[in-house]
């Protein structure tokens, strides 16, 4: 009975990856087509300084975003799971609504929020906190804001199951022994959740690595990431083989990280 659906997944998901692997070593032909002749030069292009710079920036920005998201998202989700059922539901509906927002809309709204003419700096000037409005967009600040906005709801949803399963008696016991709420959070809750935190950071890293639109909308050309480069090569440079080679590279990195994550999770479940 599962034969049909299983077959469909295989045909429409595995086959495209198979073809992509083939195309990544094919010869590029002008006009977006490709010739199935072996050509490994696309992988050789990974060793150029330009590619190295893009890769380094992609990794750096993804790591930074993952760290910001976990720093904000972990205490937030912990507090959320301690609320009553109704409050949790309202928050979750809101978080899901933000999560479902298209990158296009996120980029658009942050570009206004950080602009000089209508942005938040005007509010700060009006409150007397700044002397004149400034433009934070486009730039690194805008990109980080957008990526954090993209990743935060995702963080909450990944951390929600393990944190809501955390035994409430654990922090309570620490409180009974005289620890302050903050102290019990850092000495009991955080260590108990360490595997979940590491797993979340890795998943966020992979997730942010895949952001393709925000770097284009909120950043400057030097802020383009690997994902932007893939889209650019596939659509505008019409070089499918090079785009495929980069996608395969990104997939190998992501898969390796995902495997590490599931290993960590399994080990965490094995030992109480």
């Amino acid at each position: 009975m599962a034969f049909g659906p299983g077959l469909m997944l295989a045909v429409f998901f595995l086959v495209p990856f198979g073809i992509m692997l083939l195309v990544s070593v094919a010869e590029a032909v002008k006009g977006g087509a490709y010739n199935l002749v072996f050509d490994g030069s696309h992988y050789a292009r990974f060793f150029t300084p330009f590619f190295g710079r893009v890769l380094a920036f992609s990794i750096l920005i993804a790591l930074l975003t993952a760290c910001i998201c976990i720093t904000v998202g972990f205490p937030f989700t912990y507090a959320l799971t301690r609320f009553g059922h109704r409050t949790q539901v309202v928050w979750l509906v809101f978080i899901l609504a933000v999560l479902s927002l298209s990158e296009v809309i996120i980029g658009f709204s942050w570009s206004i929020l950080l602009s000089r003419t209508a942005g938040i700096s005007n509010l700060l000037v009006w409150l007397g906190l700044m002397s004149e409005p400034v433009a934070w967009y486009p730039g690194l600040v805008a990109l980080l804001c957008g990526l954090t906005y993209l990743g935060l709801p995702y963080t909450v949803l990944i951390l929600y199951p393990p944190l809501s399963r955390l035994d409430p008696e654990l922090p309570e016991a620490a409180r009974m022994l005289g620890a302050s709420p903050l102290r019990s959070f850092f000495t009991v809750v955080v260590p108990a959740m360490r595997p979940a935190i590491v797993a979340t950071v890795i998943m966020l890293f992979v997730f942010t690595l895949g952001a393709y639109l925000l770097p284009q909308v909120l950043g400057r050309p030097q802020h383009w990431t690997l994902s932007v480069l893939i889209t650019d090569q596939a659509i505008f440079q019409s070089n499918l083989p090079f785009a495929a080679a980069m996608a395969i590279f990104l997939m190998v990195v992501s898969l390796a990280l995902v495997v590490v994550t599931s290993r960590l999770n399994r080990r965490a479940m094995g030992s109480p």
């Binding site: 495209p16 990856f17 994902s227 990104l250």
Partner: peptide, 27 residues
Amino acid sequence: ALFTLGIAPFVLPPVITALGFLIFWVT
């Protein structure tokens, strides 16, 4: 394995899946 196959598209960066589909449909 089947469940993992069902989850996989969502775990990878979507740009990879998108390019896979692009090449698939072009072919």
